[in-house]
Design a protein around this nucleic acid. Structure first.
Length: 572
DNA sequence: CTTTTCACAGTCGCGCGGATGGGA
DNA sequence: TCCCATCCGCGCGACTGTGAAAAG
């Protein structure tokens, strides 16, 4: 079973194509032999200090001092916080100081000193927090479209790289809190090797195939075009890196600032850097340099020049607005009477019909996630959601809130991986900030185009079908106790993860013609490609979607304030 | 045989220019 | 009649995955 592949030993060179959350915990087993000076992503490798007892230490850290990697014997890297030596102090800072135009090209991250593998311990989270060195401020980063990332991650995310550059999908999108309102920051993404292996897709699986090429040249960072800017600016809206492009063209120079050079068939880990800079845009240098680094294990991906896993292809097609043309039953889907639709047509609403401004980023992950679901199996639209365990909304949307709080005590660089696990509800997303009305560009990815339409599609027109199931209440103002995921028994959550792939298969079986009012659709579609039922079967969750839409219709403004970055599911 | 490159078709948003309507 | 604002259609470019061909 696919789900049983989780946790397969990386150290034996085999890995399941299905990545479960649990695997993140064990995936930190890398062989360091021969790493040389190359940088891999490993947290907690240096001078880290933390206080798990911090008020915000809702994350089950175990105090780590120094890396816990113990060699090539499959030991783990338990720490998730990384201090120091992430950035070369002088050169990098100068690059930063020089302004963003040079930022992307002035320094190549892949060749710093010190190996940094990363261990993903815990099961991931959509949020991380940490103290800002010297500032005493606790920065928190939310991965806004985490549900989508998780979907891809389960099948081992692949990212296309081309000579001219290919945008990432899913894109990196964060919400940041805890910054000083007036302090200036540079925000950028770095993509580093996640492990020292070369990967190959063989027999339907991703397997390691020799050592990674450690000497890859080229830009490894992408600075957010709005950098530098104030903390207020960064916290005001979602920080998206939708225009980040991945390329395998080492000689790329025209758009090098917008492109990160990667190598095909290597596994990478994006990292978010928040660097405090002075008002004039220059980064403070020396050991007082205030850099925070956030990583989300679900952001890992393998760079490819052509998709290997058809599941990934299908997910891309299903979720990427630009791939709409490859959706088989697009016509039938969007020509249905509106009342029969479960997902909005991107062109349904004019762009001006935004949801209330502040809800845009509140809705984005949610919308994006549901932009195209249940489009293949019309019959599924009538299938009541009876198994909450297999419900993606419960699976994805509710398991993202984990606060990892680390009290910085020393060092100049911080790195944090947001994990999921036990955590308190004392720091909940709905409360981390009151979202102000947003400017029009808060949608970083497809800011003005497709996604705006997507968002608009969920606007107040209220024309979409609402198959409301009372058993899945939607709460626009979730209380701490509404975060059902937190309250979901751990065994259930883990079982949910481990059975996800199984449900995928079972879902396929459940979609026999006998269950479908349109059996021909199923058979035809399956001829062409493998259909992920995680999408159509459980992902649909028409109930929840409709609830969202309805809630926003009814009280969009209030819900926008309450929801924050994410749309929340409140299931009983 | 595997991996990469390229042309292609499809969708979408943006911008431009023409058509239309209202007011001076 | 002229000016201005708005609306609408078209073309272009950006973007996607596909599939065949080329390259290694």
């Amino acid at each position: 079973m696919p789900g049983e592949g989780s946790g397969s030993a990386l150290d034996d060179g085999k890995v399941s194509p299905i990545i479960c959350e649990d695997e993140l915990m064990s995936s930190g087993r890398y062989i360091l032999d021969g790493l040389g000076s190359n940088r891999y992503f490993m947290m907690g490798s240096t001078q880290q200090t933390q206080e798990s007892s911090s008020p915000c230490s809702l994350f089950p850290y175990t105090g780590q001092t120094g890396g816990v990697y113990a060699g090539s014997d499959g030991s783990r890297y338990a720490a998730s916080l990384h201090y120091g030596s992430v950035l070369p102090s002088a050169g990098f800072c100068q690059s930063l100081c020089a302004g963003r135009g040079e930022f992307g090209t002035g320094y190549q991250f892949g060749h710093g000193s010190g190996n940094t593998y990363h261990s993903y311990q815990g099961s991931g989270s959509g949020i991380g927090s940490m103290a800002l060195p010297g500032a005493g401020l606790r920065a928190q980063v939310y991965l806004c479209n985490r549900p989508l990332w998780l979907k891809f991650h389960r099948h081992q995310t692949e990212m296309i790289i081309t000579k001219q550059g290919r945008r990432m999908f899913p894109f990196l999108s964060f919400n940041i809190t805890g910054l000083s309102l007036t302090t200036h920051y540079n925000v950028f993404v770095e993509i580093v090797l996640a492990d020292p292996n070369h990967w190959r897709f063989q027999g339907g699986k991703w397997v390691t195939c020799g050592k990674a090429d450690n000497n890859m040249q080229g830009n490894k960072i992408y600075i957010h075009p709005e950098s530098p800017n104030t903390g207020a600016h960064w916290m005001r809206q979602e920080i998206s890196f939708g225009k980040l492009k991945l390329t395998n063209n080492k000689g790329a120079n025209a758009n090098t600032a917008q492109m990160i050079v990667l190598q095909s068939l290597h596994k990478y880990q994006p990292r978010l850097h928040i660097v405090e800079v002075s008002d004039d845009g220059t980064e403070s240098t020396g050991r007082d340099s205030k850099t925070q680094i956030f990583t989300f294990p679900e952001n890992q991906f393998i760079a490819v020049t052509a998709y290997q896993n058809t599941d990934i292809t299908q997910l891309k097609i299903d979720h990427n607005p630009f791939a709409k043309g490859f959706r088989d039953n697009y016509d039938s889907m969007y020509t249905l009477p509106e009342r029969e639709r479960l997902t909005p047509s991107p062109s349904d609403s004019p762009r001006t019909q935004q949801i209330v401004p502040s809800t845009r980023y509140a809705m984005q992950p949610f919308l994006q996630d549901q932009f195209v679901s249940n489009r293949l199996y019309s019959s599924e639209r009538t299938v009541p959601q009876t198994n909450s365990m297999l419900s993606p909304p419960a699976d994805d949307a509710t398991q993202r809130w984990l606060v990892t709080s680390v009290q910085q005590t020393s060092g100049s660089k911080l790195e944090l991986t947001a994990y999921e696990g036990d955590y308190s509800s004392s720091l909940l997303p709905y409360s981390f900030k009151s979202l102000p009305l947003q400017s029009a560009h808060s949608l970083g990815y497809y800011p003005d185009a497709a996604f705006a339409s997507v968002t608009a599609g969920w606007s107040s027109r209220g024309s979409y079908p609402r198959k409301v199931t009372s058993g899945l209440p939607w709460s626009p103002r979730p209380s701490p106790t509404d975060f059902t995921d937190e309250h979901m028994p751990d065994k259930d959550k883990s079982r949910e993860e481990s059975t996800f792939s199984q449900s995928w298969m079972e879902g396929a079986a459940s979609l026999k013609p006998s269950d479908s009012t349109e059996p021909s659709i199923y058979s035809v579609v399956c001829k062409r490609r493998r259909i992920s039922h995680s999408e159509s079967g459980t992902e649909n969750s028409p109930t929840v979607k409709c609830e969202v839409s309805e809630n926003f219709n009814k009280d969009s403004s209030s819900s926008s304030k309450a929801i924050g970055c994410y749309a929340f599911y409140a299931s009983s």
